[in-house]
Amino acid sequence: MLGQYFSSRHEWENQDNNPLPKEFEVDEVGATSAPLLSASYFIGARCRPYNDDFLKCKDENNGGTIECLKEGRRVTRCAVSVLTDLNKHCFDSFKLHYECLEQNNHHLGHCRSSEKIFNACVFQNLKLSKEIPGVAKDKQIHLNENPIYQGTSNDKKLSSDFLKVHEKN
């Protein structure tokens, strides 16, 4: 109504809302940052070939925004498959871990207790393990039992509560 009188109040209508052509559409990931960070190493473990393929395509095609849509869809589908599996098999511990990350400024080092539970569950069900490239297997930071920087004890408490509840069931 006021748009008639004040040009700054115009509702712009030339916004580009046209959908992507059907053949390029794919189910989007739609996860927020904390679950993605929590799942990142498992996405990396399963989707490394697809990721590398996509980035290689981008590199070879000078950006390759249009050329690499197919590889991009593969990357997205693979990541979605990991997240679906995590939700199916390890939903509780996944949630425990990403909520901890959410509460601790996304510091992975502050959520080791819940991460331990989560990693064990993922390894048991999906056979994916977290491994940081470039470091020896016994020097991996997430396996350090007595780190200097470990944040608050809240995660330890929540994790032990979680274990108690799950041992009863």
Partner: peptide
């Protein structure tokens, strides 16, 4: 590395 594993996914989107 967590970011590197996510980056292709974000770029694709």
């Amino acid at each position: 590395w967590a970011r590197f594993f996510l980056q292709p996914l974000l770029i694709a989107e």
